[in-house]
Design a binder for these strands. Structure first.
Lengths: 124, 124
DNA sequence: TTGTTAATGATAATCATTATCATTAAATAT
DNA sequence: ATATTTAATGATAATGATTATCATTAACAA
């Protein structure tokens, strides 16, 4: 059976209070800032577990994995300059709309966009 | 300046004659089958170079990178039943349209859909 | 044909992630 | 409340895909 540990709780909390994507290392950083002394292995373990339970979701970009509180399907924008990964909401990202557009029943999707984010675009 | 080597040529050829995604290791395997004795480091190096030149494109899936002859941006549909990965063309996948929709300049995108394909849907 | 230097190949290094294992602490039974 | 069971933790070693290093090779221009 599964045990609800304080570590798991804290990690879930951090992912849930963040709108965008976090790497495992970033989660560990935040934990340290909060004076929670949790081993990096436990962070990796619990993020993986939470994905398995469908509470959060995971994407791969370049050489790392990133996590977000939005389970399942996501659209995200990765800035080529600052490296931030922003979750975005786009109207086309609708299950029914997509199924019609594609002509097959879509259960899950993942859209990755790369470019220059608003902030980086402003300060050329 | 850049040099057109026999190794680069062979690697590009292999990616171009394959419709699906290939890992670096798979490319190396195929090279070996063709009796081309090319070091694995060269395979990685040249795949990366070809991506940089926009001749092929790269995705990250789980813990590995995969390469396809379709440059830059791709839409794929993975059938959960038969496991086939179909490359699809969808009208929403237009650079300008997407940039407007998202509000940031999109240079590159990648869409992965998962569900039941037409054929599998027909013969429930 | 020769000189320059980018590319190669063998392999060591890197680095994100996972496995190991002794110890700790949830959850359950007493 | 206490003891028991065993999943979870934390420190760290191991893994594995990818990248860096460097002596050697081979494109390509002169």
């Amino acid at each position: 059976m599964q045990r609800w540990t304080s570590q798991l709780s804290l990690i879930l909390e951090i992912v849930y209070e963040t709108e965008h994507f976090l790497s495992a290392e970033r989660v560990h950083q935040i934990l340290t800032q909060k004076n929670a002394n949790i081993g990096i292995a436990t962070v990796y373990r619990n993020l993986k577990k939470l994905v398995g339970q469908g509470l959060i979701s995971e994407i791969s970009w370049k050489d790392m994995k990133y996590y977000t509180r939005h389970p399942f399907s996501n659209a995200f924008f990765a800035c080529e300059k600052c490296g931030n990964i922003l979750r975005i909401d786009i109207p086309i990202a609708d299950q029914t709309y997509l199924s019609n557009e594609i002509g097959m029943s879509v259960n899950k999707w993942n859209m990755r966009f790369e470019g220059i984010c608003e902030e980086c675009g402003r300060c050329t």
